[in-house]
Every structure is written in C-alpha cells, then in structure tokens.
Amino acid sequence: MSSFQLTIRPRKGWQALDLREIFLYRELLAFLVWRDVKIRYRQTLLGGLWAVLQPLIAMLIFTLIFNRLAGVRSDGPPYPLFAFAGLVPWTFFSAALSQSSNSLIGNQQLVSKVYFPRVFIPVGAVGGLLLDLLFSLCLLFILMVHYHWALSTKVLLLPLFMLAAFLAACGCGLILSSLNVSFRDIKYAVPFLIQMGIFLTPVIYPIRYIPARWQVLMGLNPMAGVVIGFRYCLLGSVASWAVMGLSVGISLSLFVFGLLIFRRMERHFADVI
C-alpha cells in the first residue's frame, strides 16, 4: 500500500488553493491548454491567421473611423500602430473572457464525471489564448518595421504587463465561469460587457483625452493599465504610473478574489451544472 492518504469531508467556507494538487496535476493543465489551441481553429480555412486577423481588421476600421473621420489623435506614434498596440492585449482579454466564462458549462461532461482541479478549466482557456497574443505581437513588430518605429529597452517590462493581462483575464474568467454554472445570465452579459469595455479602456483614444483628475479612475479598469503599459513598453508612449499601478493592483486582487470565489463555489459545480 502506498503512503498516499486522502480524507474527503464536507468543505465549509473559504478554501485556499491546494498548490500540492495543482503541482500533481500540472501535466493536465498543459494538455488542456494544448487541446484548446489544437481545436480552436480546426476545420477553418485560415486557421491560426484568425489570431492576427481580428486585431488587424479592427485596427484598420478604427484608423478609418476614429482617426480619419472623427479626428482622434494618438499620443505620438502613427495612429495605426497606436491602435494596434492597444488592440493586441484587448483582443486577448476579450477572447479570454468570453472563452473562460463559458468554459465550465462547455466542459459539463468533465465537471460531472471526473475529478481534477477545476481551476484548470477557466485558466486553461485563458492560457490557450496566450499563443494568439504572441502571434499578434509578432505582427505588431512587423508593423513597427513598416512604420520605422524603433523598439526601446522598455520592451523588457512587457512581460510584466502580459502577466497583468493574464491575471486580470483569469480573475474575471474564474468569477464569471463559476457564476455561469448557476446563473446562465452571464452568458448574455459577457458579450455586452466586452462590447462596452473597449470604450472604457483607452484602446481607441489616448488617456490624455480624459481630464487629468479623472484619469486615476480609469485605473480601476484592470485593462486600462495593461493597454497603457503595452504602448509604453512597445511604442514608448507616455506612462501614467498612477493608472498603471492601480490597474496592476486591481488585476492581482481580481485574480486572488477570483480564486477564492471559485474555490468556494466549485464544490457545488457537479450538483448544479
């Protein structure tokens, strides 16, 4: 008999993440991410191209409508670059949100038939999109070459903002997916949230368009800091440290809060789903 011992008892109240278990099942997380990547563009003509096509087309439309017609100006770099640098993390976030919030009910069979750390389902859905993020970053570099816009050493800070985007997406994904198990309202709310979110995030316009005393308020939106951070690291745009700092803090707390909520609700998933 192995020394393995496990006691199953009713769980009550708030639970911390069982890191030992996460470590034990780490290969499964990799498999789930791999599965998501593998099937996302199966049986599509353009395949992985979709990952870059979405922000690219959005960038073209934004440039035409907001820049050319409405006269929105960037904060330095050419507007297409400016818009694209914002769209890269925003596209990641919005895709991650819509996929992870539906991940639990989309994997109903897994939830009700086998045990493994449930956290993997929404987090895996977000993880699978990191690859798309990298693809669109590559396209951004190509665009920068096209516009003769040089990269500075600030790019070394980029992983920090990628991490913030990842944490924010996971945090929201954890909360929304677990709520979605009981309340299918979430399924309808999320697309709307995403649609509105782009206007509440400085993707189309630079943050200086917002009156200085309200700018910090923008920091409550976790993606605001990420978008500003991406532009700062990649295009050398002005940094608004207060907004960025607040946003990163919010991302981190969203993630922790998301984990707690998720852990509290997960014990009922199999009964309710």
Partner: peptide, 22 residues
Amino acid sequence: SRITDPTEGTVTLRGRLASLLE
C-alpha cells in the same frame, strides 16, 4: 471520486483512486 462533496461524513482513501464513471 471527489466529483461532489458529501454533506456529512468522511471518506479516507489510502491509495490513488481512478473512476470510469463514463
């Protein structure tokens, strides 16, 4: 198989358990 929690009581496992529920 830990898919759902018991409301009362405990289960002690002294080995890895795998289920073929379906």
